[in-house]
């Protein structure tokens, strides 16, 4: 139940942007699947702002909100052996877990 007004970090990405999922180590908790880490995808949708999971999981309610995005990946980029060219996968990630891909 988010309060009406929350400080939110500015969104760094918009639909169509190419982004890479950060490759951070695992420790204690994550909502960023291993299979997307280090992989480049495209922002499909800007969804909502909220705490990042790493903050919410320890109830750090005063932490800033940030933008979440639905990211679209090509299955061939996720799994080296994937045989079907067109297939895709989407999942949702917060701003902190993404870095820009230039060119």
């Amino acid at each position: 139940m988010p309060p009406a007004e929350r400080k939110s970090l500015p969104a760094r990405f918009e639909p169509g942007d190419r982004v890479r999922v950060k490759e951070l180590p695992n420790l204690y908790y994550s909502r960023t699947q291993m299979y997307v880490r280090g992989v480049i995808g495209t922002v499909a949708v800007c969804t909502y702002t909220d705490l990042k999971p790493e903050d919410e999981a320890w109830s750090r309610d005063d932490a800033p909100y940030e933008q979440y995005y639905i990211i679209r990946f090509r299955q061939k980029d996720l799994w080296a052996e994937y045989p079907f060219d067109k297939d895709t996968l989407q999942t949702e990630l917060p701003d902190s877990w993404l870095e820009p891909v230039t060119a």
Binding site: R31, Q33, T47, Y48, D50, P53, Y68, I70, R72, Q75, F84, D85, K86, D87, T88, L89, Q90, T91, E92, L93, P94
Partner: peptide
């Protein structure tokens, strides 16, 4: 058929 794109939606956050 392979011509149809299969898009898996992995619902992992709040959507």
């Amino acid at each position: 058929p392979p011509e149809i794109e299969i898009r898996v939606e992995d619902s992992n956050q709040k959507c």
